[in-house]
């Protein structure tokens, strides 16, 4: 299981705690597992999120490995200038 920290408004939507646990070994599995477990997150996941894995931020890399001990934090999808 991987512990995932949701940002506040996402946690409210999930009607759960700020930290949820899902089964995942990479980014793609993580997002799929989150959507399956918390359908209310669907619209936001569809709009896109960024995911911080051990302090580094990923937008798209499906196969980015995630370990049991990884710190995983969901963020609004980031854009730059």
């Amino acid at each position: 299981m991987v512990a995932v920290t949701l940002w506040g408004s996402l946690a409210e939507l999930a009607e759960g705690p700020r930290e949820v646990e899902v089964e995942a070994t990479n980014l793609r599995e993580l997002l799929a597992a989150l959507e399956a477990a918390y359908p209310a997150l669907g619209p936001q996941l569809a709009r896109g999120v960024s995911v911080s894995i051990d302090g580094k931020i990923y937008n798209d890399s499906w196969f980015q490995p995630i370990h049991e001990a990884s710190e995983v934090v969901l963020l609004n999808r980031l854009e730059g200038g």
Binding site: W7, G8, S9, E12, L13, Q44, N76
Partner: peptide, 21 residues
């Protein structure tokens, strides 16, 4: 308006994102 916006605002408010701990 996205699902994150509470009631009581105009339709111009599209999203609310809360961070912190």
């Amino acid at each position: 308006q996205q699902e994150s916006v509470p009631e009581g605002f105009s339709q111009n408010v599209l999203a609310r994102s809360q961070y912190g701990h």
